[in-house]
Computed example of a mutant assay.
Amino acid sequence: MLRRLALTAVVSLAVLSAAAPGAAAASGPLPLPSPLPLTLPLPLPQGEDDARTRLTVTVSEAGDPSAEGIFELECAPVGGDHPAAEPACDRLAELADEGTDPFAPVPRGAMCTQQFGGPATARITGTWRARHIDAVFSRADGCEISRWNNLRPVLPGVR
């Protein structure tokens, strides 16, 4: 009896193993996850320009006391007390030229690596390209780390 049960299990496993590649070939390879969506250039209201960029950047737990705090950033002309104001404004202009919205949250359902980039958090509020901004950043997973790094030097490097 035990021998018959073992033989049935082995035969069943062999049949399933032989059928699985055929089923996969018939349905094709598994689809790859789609990349994060690209955004179109953000239109400026008529008569407005980048002079309307005025942001408050609040950073905490970045691992560097000089990178933590509340910083004001103004662009065109560059101003405020942000520690890297000119490069930050240059980066924002570059992202605008690419048609990228650096303040957009990670899309729902995005596949993100489960890595922890540290406890750093940031909140950016104000106006960018004459648009109201209220965005929160963290380093909780691969997507959030990428989002943070994409906005450097507006957001500081972290330890």
Rank of each mutant, 00 (worst) to 15 (best):
M1N: 08
L2S: 07
R4I: 09
R4P: 02
L5H: 08
L5P: 06
A6V: 15
T8H: 11
T8L: 11
A9G: 02
V10A: 08
V10L: 13
V11F: 12
L13W: 10
L13A: 12
L13P: 06
A14C: 02
A20Y: 11
P21T: 14
G22V: 15
A23Q: 12
A24P: 13
A24V: 03
A26D: 08
A26K: 13
P29V: 07
L30Y: 10
L30A: 15
L32K: 08
P33E: 01
P33F: 08
L36E: 11
P37C: 03
L38G: 11
P41R: 05
P41Y: 07
P41T: 06
L42T: 15
P43H: 03
L44N: 09
P45F: 12
P45E: 15
P45L: 15
G47P: 13
A51F: 02
R52S: 10
R52N: 08
T53F: 00
T56K: 13
T56N: 15
V57S: 02
V57N: 01
T58K: 10
V59H: 04
G63E: 06
G63V: 05
P65W: 11
I70V: 14
E72S: 14
E74I: 00
C75V: 00
C75E: 00
P77D: 00
V78C: 00
V78Y: 00
G80Q: 00
D81L: 04
D81G: 03
H82A: 02
P83E: 06
A85M: 02
P87S: 11
P87L: 10
C89G: 00
C89Q: 00
D90M: 00
L92K: 01
A93W: 01
E94P: 15
A96Y: 01
A96I: 00
D97E: 13
E98G: 04
E98N: 05
G99L: 06
T100Y: 09
D101M: 04
P102F: 04
F103M: 07
F103L: 12
A104N: 04
P105Q: 08
P105S: 09
V106L: 13
P107L: 10
R108S: 10
R108V: 11
R108F: 12
R108M: 15
A110P: 10
T113Q: 06
T113L: 14
Q114A: 13
Q114N: 05
Q115C: 10
Q115R: 12
F116K: 03
G117D: 07
G117M: 02
G117S: 12
G117P: 04
P119C: 01
P119L: 05
A120E: 09
A120Q: 04
A122F: 14
A122S: 02
R123H: 07
R123W: 09
T125R: 07
G126H: 03
T127Q: 13
R129N: 09
A130S: 14
H132C: 05
I133N: 01
D134T: 03
D134P: 11
A135Q: 10
V136T: 13
F137L: 10
S138G: 05
A140N: 09
A140R: 10
D141T: 06
G142S: 05
C143A: 08
C143I: 03
E144R: 07
E144A: 10
R147S: 12
W148G: 00
W148S: 04
L151S: 05
R152T: 11
P153V: 14
V154H: 03
L155R: 06
L155K: 01
P156H: 04
P156D: 04
V158G: 14
V158Q: 06
R159H: 03
